[in-house]
């Protein structure tokens, strides 16, 4: 099963690119010129988002380094125990909305601490796999076009993240406990 999925995911990109190139050949449009013209824009976009990236990445990095999450963990411990939520996974619930690379780091930490077949690992994997980094996406996407008023976008994203975490806890307790 995994083998099939892995092969599929390796072949998806070449497959899409092949279709695009063949269609261009069929329509006789200049593929090389189109490519370089499009690629030029990548530079501008990447430069434009630098200030927003700095803001969000510095915020998350110092938040993680400050140990704020440990304080939160101690406060929440009784509730976590009641719902059968492994305490290690709380870090993940917070970083999940903040930063993608941090989340993968936390997931590896949890695997190291609790073992690859523990309930904590399974819950952490489901949480990681089922959501995207809300603040990162918001600052990059809106930053790239210069939007300053986010309106309800962030709130909706965070509420959905919370629903996602509750759903993960609930579904995992059905599947794995």
């Amino acid at each position: 099963m995994i083998k099939i999925l892995n092969t599929l995911s390796v072949y998806i990109l070449p497959f899409i690119i092949t279709i695009i190139l063949c269609y261009s050949l069929y329509k006789k449009t200049p593929a090389y010129e189109s490519f370089t013209e499009g690629a030029k824009e990548g530079f501008n976009i990447a430069i434009k988002i630098i200030p927003y990236l700095i803001a969000i990445i510095v915020c998350t990095a110092i938040f993680r380094a400050s140990g704020a999450i440990n304080i939160l963990q101690n406060m929440l411990k009784p509730i976590l125990d009641y719902f059968n939520i492994p305490i290690e996974t709380t870090i993940l619930m917070v970083t999940r909305s903040l930063s993608g690379s941090a989340t993968l780091g936390v997931l590896s930490d949890i695997i190291n601490q609790t073992g690859a077949n523990s309930y904590a690992t399974k819950l952490a994997a489901v949480i990681t796999g089922s959501s995207e980094t809300t603040f990162y996406v918001a600052s990059v996407y809106f930053g790239a076009v210069g939007i300053k008023k986010f309106r309800h976008a962030l709130l909706a994203g965070i509420l959905a993240d919370i629903v996602g975490i509750i759903a993960a806890i609930w579904i995992c307790s059905i599947f794995f406990l």
Binding site: Y23, P30, S34, G38, K40, A46
Partner: peptide, 21 residues
């Protein structure tokens, strides 16, 4: 690091755009 990835995908997609795909 994003410059490279962005450039590549925007390039590929521009081919598809120009050909009408």
């Amino acid at each position: 690091a994003l410059i490279g990835i962005m450039g590549f995908w925007l390039g590929i997609i521009n081919i598809a755009k120009k050909s009408g795909l």
